[in-house]
Design a protein around this nucleic acid. Structure first.
Lengths: 230, 230
DNA sequence: CAAATCCTCAATTGAGCACTTAAATAGTAC
DNA sequence: GTACTATTTAAGTGCTCAATTGAGGATTTG
């Protein structure tokens, strides 16, 4: 059956199509795993193209192209920093969108849970520490050491109150800096970052009492909890 | 330069790639304007494939294909209703995701605002009524008539307290049902639905005091405000 | 000004998507 | 059980996208 529509209706439909296609461009920008990895890293602070490329395992040219896509739809912005160009999330709402996407994916698609386990290792052997619990223990007691295992630039860009920075790569040779009479709570970039899980495994093996924070710094910040920089 | 990675790192990277590709599948589902139109309509209540197709101007076969995509990633679910099949958003979080996407698109992309104006007509001539204001006036006074101009099925599926239903198509011939001593506040499916704007134009021309609600029923419900059904 | 360093662009390749038409399926209603 | 109808699937076409490679810009630093 052929649709008969008036001229006005047809032009209105064309306008609606154009509008929703424009919304869809944002979806397109979110429709690539590499771009989502980039967003996830950028949620922890700005990066040069080269660093982003090396951290994500993407080639520089390809990373640059993905960043153009993200920039065109307004998800990231850039600024020059000496000889390099730093990209950053355009604003906190972008992180909310990524988190929302993640959350729906986890709730609605069993495959995601399986792949997360495959990537992070079965991490549900030890219950993670919730944000509220950690905040309470930080305020009212001194029985916990908060450990930031991200690269030190990210720590500098913002970290949990009283957190100690030991990047994952240095953890094994700096074990003596950690107390054995407190519980260690490790955190990293978020629930889909492997750093904290790896740190927990290392510390557990070395005999420490240790758990991971339920997610990472970006989520802590997004929850409106205090973040210290510098 | 060729990347050298250890076997363990390589497999971990593969797992991470797979995980983020899985997230990206959700993005892919959101990467098409027609599918976003479908989600926007479904936020107002379930629909058969045929109705969805006719309301969006998509062919039935094509609508069915889009619905398969949405269903595979868990954004919609379906159930049989007599001889037809009804599709609905899988849960309220899906609407949150769509709203979040919309919101970032509007804030970050000037093109979206222009296209919205092109579709809806310059609607900023009259300030829309906020949800809080409407709620207050509904509770404490009797100076406002709330008008639902969506199709009557959607009104039946859920509407604002004390709202009167006059579908847009019937509005011109039912003008006498509306009071002239109150302000009329019209609402529809959301900020990117043209119904309320068209109703405002019709009523304004007929001499009514009328404004539109800032957005639609789904946003009202998502804000946790009271919704009446039946 | 020139060299060095980063980043972006352009061209290419192969893969995947949207939409149409036409045929098949799966329920319901009688 | 049969006919009917709404929905789904299949096949085909034109288009868009991701990634690679190599060349070309832009900006700082010497």
């Amino acid at each position: 059956m052929v649709q008969r529509v008036s001229g006005a209706e047809a032009s209105s439909r064309a306008a609606k199509t154009a509008l929703f296609d424009e919304f869809a461009r944002l979806g397109q920008a979110l429709a690539n795993g590499r771009r989502l990895e980039i967003l996830d890293v950028l949620a922890n602070g700005e990066r040069t193209v080269e660093r982003l490329a090396s951290e994500t395992g993407i080639s520089v040219a390809n990373a640059s192209q993905h960043l153009q896509v993200l920039r065109e739809v307004g998800l990231v912005r850039r600024r020059r920093e000496g000889t390099s160009i730093c990209y950053a999330l355009h604003d906190p709402q972008v992180f909310d969108l990524w988190r929302n996407l993640r959350s729906v994916a986890v709730q609605r698609r069993a495959e995601v849970g399986q792949l997360a386990d495959a990537y992070l290792g079965a991490r549900h052997t030890l219950e993670p520490v919730g944000r509220a619990e950690l905040l309470r223990r930080l305020k009212h007691g001194d029985d916990v050491l908060v450990l930031d295992v991200r690269p030190s630039e990210e720590y500098a860009a913002g970290h949990l109150p009283r957190a100690v920075s030991i990047p994952l790569a240095e953890l094994r040779r700096r074990l003596r800096e950690l107390p054995r009479d407190k519980e260690v709570v490790a955190y990293c970039r978020g629930p889909y970052c492997a750093f904290a899980d790896k740190a927990v495994r290392v510390l557990h093996q070395a005999g420490f009492r240790v758990r991971r924070l339920v997610d990472g710094l970006p989520e802590w910040r997004a929850a409106g909890l205090p973040v210290v920089s510098g």
